[in-house]
Simulated assay, not measured.
Amino acid sequence: MPAPTALLRRPGELAAEETIPVPGQVDEELLLDGGAGVAEPANIGTGLPAQNQSEDTEMHIDEEGRPQFAPAKNTDGPFRAETRKVPIPPHRMSPLKSCWTKVYPPLVEHLKLQVRMNMKNKAVELRSSKHTDDPGALQKGADFIKAFSLGFDVDDAIALLRLDDLYIETFEIKDVKTLNGEHLSRAIGRIAGKDGKTKFAIENASRTRVVLADQKIHILGGFKNIHIAREAIVSLILGSPPGKVYGNLRTVASRMKERF
């Protein structure tokens, strides 16, 4: 009696009905039935649920064919304190000590910075804290202290903290014209005027603040206002009579009033 065919196959051969199971392969019947008992390979290693991933990666297109993406989510990173040191000239240390009660409140209360006056190094140190909201607070505070160190009044320097379009421009008389000796002294006298009247007239007409520090001139104000004040000061340095400069300032001041 011949033996059954299943018994006559050679070692290593498989019957037509038998298959070799492959690791990771899922039976089609299980997939059709819902895959009960089979682990879902989705989202392995991402740590995010499938719904959030579909929302992040799904792209929508508007009527004009442009892609629309979901807005980025704000994540609070680790806090990192930043410091800034503003050196103070020796001749401005005494005014800083006398006005310190007016200098630090705007920095602490308005900008939420940590401030201290270092007497040994003759500098004002600023540091941001976790309560600081404005990312540019440290730079504003440094500009405020720098303006005070250049010779501006505290009330004028505080404007740098409240307004964003204020700048400080510094130049020397020698940048305009090379003057020495008495000629340099007369140029400084023409800019200041008798009892400072010429300087006050330039400030009021151009809506700026001017500081005369020997040969250096510092101007605080807006971009266009600084240009007006600088042109008047340059004219005085070059030798224009103050009466002519006053006339030009009146014209400029009337034009500025018409703009407003």
Rank of each mutant, 00 (worst) to 15 (best):
K102A: 11
I233Q: 05
T46S: 15
R84F: 07
P78K: 09
G77P: 01
E258V: 15
A229C: 06
E182Q: 11
R127Y: 00
T101L: 12
D195Y: 03
L236V: 01
V245M: 06
L126N: 02
H131G: 12
D164E: 15
M256D: 12
K177L: 09
A81M: 11
A70L: 15
N180S: 13
R255W: 07
S206W: 06
A6M: 07
P242E: 08
L96A: 14
E55V: 11
M119Y: 09
P89F: 05
R84E: 09
R84H: 06
E125F: 00
R207E: 06
A147D: 03
K130I: 07
K73Q: 14
L31H: 05
H218Y: 07
A137R: 04
T46F: 14
E82Y: 09
K97I: 13
V154W: 01
N52I: 13
G141C: 03
I202Y: 02
E18Y: 04
T251R: 15
K122E: 14
T251C: 05
K85W: 08
M93W: 14
E109G: 08
F171M: 06
F148W: 08
Y104M: 09
V115G: 05
P95G: 06
D27P: 04
N74C: 08
K120C: 07
H60T: 14
T46N: 09
N74F: 14
I145H: 05
D143L: 09
E58F: 10
E125G: 04
A192D: 06
I168A: 03
N225T: 02
T132A: 02
L166Y: 09
A42Q: 12
V124M: 10
D175C: 02
D165A: 12
A6V: 11
I188S: 11
K244E: 14
H227G: 04
K112T: 08
R66H: 11
I219M: 11
A159Y: 07
Y167T: 14
R84C: 10
I188V: 15
V38M: 05
E231R: 15
F69A: 08
K197C: 06
L184T: 00
P41M: 05
R127D: 01
S149I: 00
G196T: 00
R209T: 08
R250V: 12
I188L: 07
L238Q: 12
M1W: 08
G77H: 06
Q114H: 15
H227N: 08
D27L: 13
P95V: 06
H227L: 06
P90L: 09
A81S: 14
Q53K: 11
L161Y: 01
R209M: 03
K97F: 14
D27F: 07
H227V: 02
A187C: 02
I217G: 00
F148Q: 07
G193F: 03
V245Y: 04
E109M: 10
E29R: 13
D155Q: 11
P241H: 15
E58L: 12
T251N: 14
D134A: 12
I217P: 01
L220R: 03
L113G: 00
F148S: 04
